[in-house]
Amino acid sequence: MQIFGVDIGGSGIKGAPVDLERGDLADERYKVLTPHPATPDAVADGVRQVVDHFGWTGPVGATFPGVVTGGSTIRTAANVDKNWIGVDARALLGERLGGLPVTVLNDADAAGVAEMRFGAGRDRRGTVIMLTFGTGIGSAVFVDGALVPNTELGHLELNGHDAEKRASSKVKDDQDLSWEQWARRVTKYLAHVEMLFSPELFIIGGGVSRKSHKFLPLIEGITAEIVPAELQNNAGIVGAAMRAAQG
């Protein structure tokens, strides 16, 4: 069975059909740059471009980098245009895609759902926290496999700032931090999250997960097990398709 997944991020909008039996992309993903400003209409046009690239005519699952309530309503928009707040994203995207059925969920929640089913969180019980490091820091919290949605732990305070303003991979690039410098910031962030939630496992995702060997060995003093996401930066696409398959 194949369902289409779209991952809307602060820097890119990427998508592909997903083979839900294998938990992997059924075709090479297609990506367009996130428009700036990332207004609802402009982003919806980008989503349509990605879906149209494949000539897709079935259900579509889409992620969003912020809080999504009721499977449709956007409540926060830290890394896209603030005009998203209050928008019915399911209706907007469905209209832009010519009436295709659309399901919307938080981007990190989507990535976490995929990792818990097909990746590093498979068969893991207890508290598992997926953290995605990209334009911001997304989070997905699971207790015995059940998702606690919209946790947004990237906005915890770290040294007087939103954590994602100190430890996202975008900050690493913008400030030209070495892997060692960035790993120290990530360590402080993980220690704070661990103090609050005492997870058994951290799964580290986002685009930077491809280079986990460069920074995970530098993180010390964390009790929880820390592993890279197995689906890497495709986890959001897979998780979006999984949610769309549920209707």
Rank of each mutant, 00 (worst) to 15 (best):
G61S: 03
G160M: 15
T69K: 14
T132V: 01
I222K: 05
G23F: 13
R122C: 03
D19R: 04
R166S: 09
V143A: 13
D24L: 15
R96P: 00
M116D: 01
E220P: 00
K82S: 02
A114V: 08
I3L: 07
E220L: 05
H36K: 13
P101Y: 02
P40I: 03
D45L: 08
D52T: 12
K31M: 15
T187A: 01
I8C: 12
K188E: 13
L153I: 07
I203L: 12
R124M: 10
V87W: 02
G138T: 06
A16M: 10
I85H: 00
A229I: 08
G15Y: 05
R166Q: 15
G86D: 14
N233G: 00
T76P: 03
F54Y: 12
E164R: 10
R48I: 03
G15K: 07
Q49V: 12
W179D: 12
D41Y: 07
A224C: 05
G207S: 11
L93R: 02
E157F: 15
A241P: 01
E28T: 14
D7A: 12
N106V: 11
G46H: 02
V171L: 09
G154Q: 08
V43A: 00
V227K: 04
R122A: 14
D109L: 08
L201M: 07
A111Y: 03
V238K: 02
E180M: 04
R166M: 15
A167S: 14
G12K: 11
V60R: 03
H213R: 06
R22T: 13
E200V: 10
F197V: 11
I226D: 09
V193G: 01
V60F: 00
L156Q: 10
V87M: 09
D144E: 13
A240F: 04
G247I: 02
A26R: 04
N79M: 02
F215S: 11
L25V: 14
G145T: 04
G66W: 14
V104T: 04
G160H: 14
G112R: 10
L218A: 11
K31V: 15
T132K: 02
